[in-house]
Design a protein around this nucleic acid. Structure first.
Lengths: 235, 235
DNA sequence: CGGGAGCTTGAGGAGGATCAAATCATGTGG
DNA sequence: CCACATGATTTGATCCTCCTCAAGCTCCCG
């Protein structure tokens, strides 16, 4: 099993008041006074690919702001197989359900080398009124991502889905993007790892992407966009 | 086009303090005193199938608690086609984004004869602190539904997806359930209306469901569950 | 009755799944 | 440092599901 439960490596206590992406995160509305008033044991954590922040059924002790990298949210089907129901990237918050549910209902697993801030549920509960706006905004953001997955990554041919995935993995202004295991690509797009591999290989032959390093791709944005919206045989 | 924008029929002002499903709704935490303090122009609305509560791009003026019936949340793809990204049923809240976004980003369209409470954004904003807990709970609920769609209705063969849809449409304790247009079934399950029709016809022949009235089905729960989890040709 | 929209059913073909084998990356122990 | 084992990836061949195109059918409404 690739998705081992390696305890993520602890890095150090965060200095929230000097956070580089503070306008993106849950604490955006807090004042410097707020930071000095509360003792906040926020941890800064590096998470290697394959490591889980939490597993389904596990007690919800904290939520996590993604500072760098990419996570998958998995749920398990009655037959034991699993399905990726959401992707979470920089600025997204994992485990928002700590505010309303005692346990996590999915697994959060890093797909790339990632960095997160761990915020204990107690801290969130205490700051809750002050975080109201941002918590709403983060729920909204999580919904948008979820709908994006349903919309872009579950519709159309394998070609289209893979093209949309490449376009999703980084903003159009960035040339390179990191991919992940073919099995995960499959679970995300509802295709088999073989079809994922074949389609990516075809994209490489057609120069739509170029693998500059292992699982690091240079993208031809315009060409990929054309594929993403192309309609069946009528085209 | 079936999804006409018929203005939903106004029914009357709601008596929130005597609401039959008050423990399910946004106002669960409000006291009777709260109700008498605020003037709340909450409307009780009947919505016929096919009518839209709102459309993408439209200004977000209110949110809606579903009291009866079923709604689809649709988003549109660049090529003009659409995809159902979520289903919302009794107790769910449509348009939670009014708290954070100026416009709606999807269409909310009734699939069945439905009843909703319309709560203006101003009312929500004013009561916001008191609703904090319930708003969180409703976001969570909406996320769960969204993930359920991704998990159950986008995975596996057409047979499995249709079986899971039948199981989703009503709790196992209820025998009958209402279905909707084949086109919507298709948009929800990422299959064509033809395949939806064929699969449902096959279920009827196999006595897995029985159509007691137009689009009202009696279900063999156990048999459907068996199909929902059956694994490929290895079965 | 006739028209229209949605539903059903049929035949054929394409795309993706499945099974299986070869190649490539990574880490381990000699 | 190299040989080997392990697991992921790639590729191939075959089969089956589902899409496509198309025709006939049902239900509803004037």
């Amino acid at each position: 099993m690739r998705d081992n439960e390696i305890a993520a490596a602890w890095h150090g206590l965060a200095a929230c008041d000097r956070c580089g992406i503070r306008d993106l995160v849950l604490f955006a509305d807090l004042t410097n006074e707020d930071f000095s008033t509360f003792h906040m044991p926020i941890e800064d954590i590096w998470v290697p690919p394959g490591a889980a922040l939490f597993q389904p059924g596990q007690e919800a002790l904290a939520l996590y702001t993604v500072r760098e990298g990419l996570f998958k949210l998995e749920q398990y089907l009655p037959d034991g197989s699993h399905r990726i129901v959401n992707l979470m990237a920089e600025g997204d918050v994992l485990g928002l359900e700590v505010t309303v549910s005692p346990v996590h209902e999915h697994a959060a697993i890093a797909l790339q080398p990632s960095k997160v801030c761990r915020i204990p549920r107690g801290t969130v509960a205490r700051l809750s009124p002050k975080l109201h706006r941002q918590l709403m905004a983060k729920w909204h953001q999580a919904m948008q991502r979820s709908h994006q997955c349903a919309r872009d990554l579950s519709t159309g041919s394998a070609r289209q889905k893979v093209a949309r995935l490449f376009l999703t993995l980084a903003p159009p202004t960035v040339e390179r993007c990191r991919l992940f295991a073919r099995e995960d690509v499959g679970a995300l797009l509802s295709i088999t790892p073989q079809t994922a591999s074949r389609t990516i290989a075809e994209f490489k032959r057609q120069k739509l992407v170029r693998e500059v390093a292992l699982n690091v791709f240079q993208r031809d944005i315009a060409a990929l966009q054309a594929i993403a919206i192309e309609t069946g045989p009528a085209a």
